[in-house]
Amino acid sequence: MIQTAVTIAIICLALSMLALVYRIIKGPTLPDRIVALDAVGVNIVGIVALICIKVDTTAYVEFILLFGILAFIGTVAFSKYLEKGVIIDHDRDR
């Protein structure tokens, strides 16, 4: 029972990732693509959690938190590049 439910959920997340990939390719501006990439990261976390249930292991649990942190840092870096033109500025103007 839980196996079929998990399979259906994985298929739904894969379809939503497909729609997000369409937005990444087609997206008219760069911020569209960044938001879509962030959402793809969240979907990957969800799929890994579901696969964790499906193969009945806890070995991938660390990956979920790790990937959440990495997706956050990547999105922050991209947004800072869009806003300021540099990712790491040398001296902060207070």
Binding site: I73, V76, A77, I87, I88, D89, H90, D91, R92
Partner: peptide, 12 residues
């Protein structure tokens, strides 16, 4: 540390 670099700057 990279997150710290992004939020603040290299000198801090």
């Amino acid at each position: 540390i990279l997150l710290l670099l992004l939020a603040y700057d290299l000198q801090t």
